[in-house]
Amino acid sequence: MERQALGLATWAVFGDVVYIGLKNMDYPLIIATACGAIALYLMMPRGQAWLIKLGALIGVLALAAGLSYLTHWASVAFPAQPAAGPGIFFYAFALIAIASAVGVICHPKPIYSALYFVLMTLAIAGLFLLMMAEFIAVVLIIIYAGAILVTYVFVIMLASPTGAAAEAVDYDRISADPLVAVLVSFLLLGTVLETLFTHSPHGFIASSASGAPAHAVHWGGLAALGKNLYSRYTLPLELAGVLMTISLVGAVMIARKNSPHTQMLGLGDVPTE
């Protein structure tokens, strides 16, 4: 009897929570996110071109829905300044970044994915310029587009099956578990966006634009960044250098062919051809 009552009470509370959750949900945002999820699910490599085209169409619809939601949200949450927001450059760079990120994970050929990644890096560097982080923008291009991506491209060329083995490769043409992956990440994304758009104006982002400290004239730029790195974050900066050294040594040791280390691990006699 008591257990039944307890179960009933639990269900009542649970139902209440679900009801309140459903009632307060921001349905246009959820629909836009779900459209994006469906689009990405259709565009994951599956070896069928028309599915990819359909997915791209739904993706464009999802982006348009998100954009119209943004204008609606701004007029509701900030009635005093509904037009306040980033300019056309933000939308252009954001669109390029999202489209090329989708290109990275959806293209069946890794070398094209790497090139899409370069495009995404350039767009994000443009966004950093818009946020007055010009040094970070330049560093991002040098390190990501210049160094890391060249490494990726070299590895893609070095470690590609050739000849008959290349014909039989299907692990790039058919993805593993697109449904589970899309569900998990878009649940996460929907939760984050819901929290961001329904609670942010008066919620966890406490300080408004007027809350910036008064002494913050020289807050950004290379000089302020260098001063910050070498005064407040000296030890982390040294540790970052140590990390780079360790990873350099580690990468050389791992990638060496028939080194004493690999022989010690029993990986010595590797057929090379």
Binding site: A84, P178, F186, A209
Partner: peptide
């Protein structure tokens, strides 16, 4: 202002989600 910040945060979340999909669904180690 606030609307601008929220848009940038939303873009970051979208990119993170796309990367997560690729991380879980692709089968190529690279």
């Amino acid at each position: 202002s606030d609307p601008t910040l929220v848009r940038y945060l939303a873009l970051g979340a979208v990119l993170f989600a796309i990367g997560l999909v690729g991380f879980m669904a692709r089968r190529n180690m690279i």
